[in-house]
């Protein structure tokens, strides 16, 4: 039911896009700018002492005095082809290792779901 509805929507959107060809470029640009700003917001969180503070434990390009507790955050796309697995690790690392030092950012509501998405967007650029 849902699927059929969305297919209808896509078609409708497609038709609209074709009809208003001039408008096509604008939303596309808007979208990539949006993604960029999510990563930027995520970077701020990752480097902030009160928020994510990822830098306290992980080496991150662009950050000074990183900790050595967790693995360096590099090559994340290759290490986590499945982005959702990385998100799950940020959300609750104790699932994979009950005595991990990594705080359960989602489960303990240290970060909001939106903030986790932003951190994820940032980390995936590393």
């Amino acid at each position: 039911m849902m699927k059929r509805k969305s297919r209808v929507l896509v078609t409708a959107a497609g038709a609209a896009a074709i009809l208003f060809g001039g408008l096509v470029i604008e939303p596309a640009v808007h979208n990539s700018a949006h993604a960029e700003s999510a990563a930027d917001a995520g970077k701020k969180i990752a480097f902030s002492r009160k928020k994510g503070n990822c830098i306290a434990c992980h080496i991150i390009a662009g950050g000074t005095s990183p900790g050595t507790i967790g693995p360096p955050l590099v090559g994340m796309q290759a290490r986590y082809p499945d982005k959702s697995k990385l998100r799950a690790q940020i959300w609750d690392a104790t699932k994979a290792n009950p005595i991990t030092m990594m705080p359960p950012f989602g489960r303990h509501k240290i970060l909001s779901e939106k903030e986790i998405d932003q951190v994820l967007a940032f980390i995936m650029t590393l």
Binding site: L9, A13, A17, P27, A28
Partner: peptide, 15 residues
Amino acid sequence: KMLALAFVSLIITGC
């Protein structure tokens, strides 16, 4: 590709 992106973004924006 651009067109496809545009569709998606249109939908997202709409939602």
